[in-house]
């Protein structure tokens, strides 16, 4: 599995689109001071909020746009013919691809965290709680990458992208789903059940968004970080298991 992780990482870091996205990320973080100055309100909070949003968006965009091609490209370009005929099992190949992308995202995440720390530190706007929020973002990235990998094993990048972004958007707003289910419960119990099924079926990414805690000082319940870590780990494991099951059944014609 190690060689697959390394080659996936190598492929990602030689992808020019990655550097383009990184460039825009860095520019926006550096320009956050201007946004802070121009916005009415607490300049420090605006800068921190913008910084966290940029890191999250950058991570998610890379996770989605590299993730949806992760396996599909191997099948489409037939590069996996040479790999799966070697002594490596399909599940290890798939896990290696996933971990290779996660390693890439980790490097980017750490680099952006370091940039944000140094930049906000120099401006006297650094807040150590931001690290907790950035941890939450990375958990979200792990889940979204696993979802993209799962879709990538059986459908085209366009559909995978659409499905994964939908999961991310709905997952980010999952609290609203529960509220919606409560609203429609009396008029349409069937619809409420459907909305609840979507709520329980999709990852609750909203819980991993710790921006309110980092920026506005909202307290976290005890054990919260552990609970979201376990939830992210479980959802990731289920997605990867599903991906393996779909991938194992495939004929590569």
């Amino acid at each position: 599995m190690g060689p697959v992780i390394v080659v996936t990482f190598r492929e990602a870091v030689r992808n020019r689109v990655l550097y383009l996205l990184l460039f825009f990320g860095v520019v926006i973080v550096l320009l956050s001071r201007i946004a802070g100055l121009l916005t009415v309100g607490d300049e420090m909070k605006v800068m921190q909020d913008l910084g966290l949003t940029v890191v999250a968006l950058l991570d998610i965009l890379i996770a989605v746009f590299v993730g949806i091609e992760l396996v599909y490209k191997e099948i489409d370009k037939r590069t996996l013919y040479l790999i799966l005929t070697k002594p490596i099992t399909r599940d290890r190949f798939l896990l290696g691809k996933y971990l290779g992308l996660v390693l890439t995202l980790l490097v980017i995440h750490v680099a952006m965290t370091a940039l944000l720390t140094v930049y906000l530190g120099l401006l006297g706007r650094w807040n150590p709680r931001l690290l907790v929020a950035l941890y939450g973002t990375f958990l979200e990235v792990l889940v979204v990458t696993a979802v993209a990998t799962m879709f990538s094993t059986w459908t085209t990048p366009i559909l995978s992208g659409l499905f994964t972004l939908s999961v991310w958007v709905i997952g980010r707003g999952s609290r609203s789903l529960l509220a919606l289910a409560d609203v429609v419960q009396k008029k349409s119990p069937g619809l409420a059940r459907l909305v609840k099924a979507v709520y329980y079926g999709l990852p609750n990414l909203d819980r991993m968004n710790l921006d309110a805690y980092a920026i506005h000082g909202v307290a976290l319940p005890p054990g919260y970080l552990l609970s979201i870590t376990v939830a992210a780990g479980l959802y990731t494991a289920v997605m990867l298991l599903l991906a393996v099951l779909l991938f194992q059944r495939r004929d590569f014609t």
Binding site: K77, R78, Y81, P87
Partner: peptide, 15 residues
């Protein structure tokens, strides 16, 4: 078993 097999597909594709 695959450890003891070498395979080259038609028009092999590479990274």
């Amino acid at each position: 078993v695959r450890r003891r097999i070498g395979f080259m597909p038609e028009n092999p594709y590479f990274y």
